[in-house]
Simulated scan of single mutants.
Amino acid sequence: MYLEHANITVKSIAESEKFLVSAFPDFVIRGSGRRPSDDRLWVHIGNQQVYLALNEMPQHKPLDLTDYAQDGVNHLGWVVDDLDAIDQRLQSSGYAEIIEFQEENEYRRRHYYRDGNGFEWEFVEYLTERAEQRNQY
C-alpha cells in the first residue's frame, strides 16, 4: 500500500510548483485544466509514482496552521534519500528552514520548510532500515 496523491487547495499554484520542483527536480506537471463548475485552475504535479493535486483559489483565506491548533493538514512528510541535497536546492531557491522543528538523531534527520503559500513541508532522511529504530519517539 502507498499514498498515490494528496489534494490541496492553495492560493497560488505557481508558488507551490516553484517549491516542489526545487525540492524534487523530477516533478513535472502531469495534467492540468479548469474545473467546469467554477473555472478554477488545477494541476497534478509529481513523478510517475506520486503526485499532488493542487487546486488554485486565489481569494481563499488560508488557515493559520503555524501552531497546529486548527483543523486541516498541518504538513506533508516526504521520505528522501539525501536531505542535504533537498536543503541545498530549497535554500538556493530562497526557502528558509524552520529551525525549531528540526530533528537530527542517530536514526533520522527531519527538516521543515514553508512554501510561498505558507504551507509546511517535512523532509525526513532515515539513517537505518530497522523500523523499530525509525519509529522511536
Rank of each mutant, 00 (worst) to 15 (best):
A53R: 10
R108T: 05
P58M: 07
R108D: 04
I29A: 13
Q102M: 05
Y112T: 02
Y95R: 02
V79C: 10
T66A: 15
G31S: 14
N7W: 11
L83T: 04
F27V: 07
E4A: 15
D82A: 09
P36H: 11
N135M: 00
Y112E: 02
V124A: 15
A23W: 00
V79N: 12
D67A: 13
R114D: 05
L20M: 15
G118I: 02
E4F: 11
V43K: 06
F24M: 05
H75E: 13
A6V: 13
Q49E: 14
E100I: 01
V43L: 14
I45Q: 11
T128V: 04
F101P: 11
N117G: 10
L90N: 09
P58C: 04
E104Q: 12
M57D: 15
N117Q: 13
F123C: 01
F24C: 01
W42L: 04
S32F: 08
E125K: 03
N74K: 03
L54S: 14
F27K: 10
D81A: 00
H60I: 04
Q136S: 12
N135S: 08
Y112H: 11
H5N: 09
G118L: 01
H5E: 12
Y95L: 02
I45S: 14
R40Q: 02
E103G: 11
L3V: 13
D38F: 09
L76T: 04
F19S: 02
H60P: 09
D67P: 03
E106D: 07
L127H: 06
Y68R: 15
